Computed example of a mutant assay.
Amino acid sequence: MSLRISAVVTTLDNAATLDACLASLRFCDEIVLLDSGSTDATLEIASKHGARIATQPFAGYGPQKQAAIELAQGEWILLLDADESLAEDGRATIQRELAAPRADGYRLPRREWLFWRWPHPATRPNWQLRLFRKAHGRMNMVPVHAAPVVDGTVIDLDAPFRHYGEPRLADRVDKVNRYSSGLVEHKRERRVRFIGLRLLLYPPLVFLKLYLGKRYFLNGWAGYFAARTQAFYAFLKYAKVLEATRDPGRGPRA
């Protein structure tokens, strides 16, 4: 009998969050975990949850997740990061939907950990494509922000999941610095236009979109920090591209 749902997770030293992630996926027909060299308790936790474990050196965000997807045997792929977990009502929603699917892919609402708190219930979530037919989906190869793309119909499904992100401001700043460096060559290859205008206008727009549009203001200083650091990330992405065009021999440094 063919498998219906394969949960797919990639890991590297994720012992702190993996237990909650895999516990939320126990309703799936299988859990496929592709590890890239963990030295903490990640693999022990995965074994405890009955995951089918494979290992390979890290190949990049998109290629690593695609390799994990190809190991899955289910018709449907539920793709989570090791610091994410599906809510209880999200599991029931997915099971009901896949009894009579209306689409080839589904965007799910992600609730973001904001430094020291979960967001206010009225804070708007980030919708991300995480559930799709294996035969219709694949990872794109965008550096850092690789995401699934689906050939077919994609709709929103109210099956929430949580992302336990960086617990400290220093961790968040370090991450946006690394990620922005990782995007420089990709953006240069795409020949991004109007970089000066983007530097001036895009960061404040990102801040307003989050702080007002997604109601991060309901979360006190944690919401302000989250919106401000995301705006800083928007600035760094284009500032580093401009820097690289002015000083191409040096290149970006994390």
Rank of each mutant, 00 (worst) to 15 (best):
A147P: 02
K240E: 11
G105V: 00
K134Q: 15
K237W: 04
P109I: 11
A244R: 09
T10A: 02
L79A: 10
P63C: 10
W113R: 03
K237P: 03
A87H: 15
R138F: 00
V32F: 03
P109A: 09
M139R: 03
L98P: 05
V184W: 01
V192Y: 08
D35S: 00
Y233W: 15
V9F: 05
P248L: 10
L169A: 07
F194K: 11
C28Y: 00
A122P: 04
R107H: 04
V206W: 10
A103E: 09
A99T: 14
A59M: 12
R178M: 08
M141D: 15
E88P: 11
A16T: 10
L86M: 13
L22N: 01
C28V: 09
R198K: 15
F207D: 00
L236I: 10
A227I: 05
L200E: 09
K237I: 13
G165L: 04
T229F: 06
H136S: 14
D40E: 08
D158H: 13
P63R: 08
R96M: 09
Q64E: 13
G165C: 02
R124N: 02
P121K: 07
A227S: 15
A222M: 08
D158R: 10
R215K: 15
G152T: 04
G249C: 08
V173N: 04
F115M: 06
C21H: 00
L205Q: 14
T123Y: 08
V142S: 10
V206Q: 14
R96H: 12
L18K: 04
K175A: 12
E30Y: 07
L131S: 05
L18F: 03
N140R: 10
C21K: 01
K48P: 03
L114S: 02
G182S: 06
R193L: 13
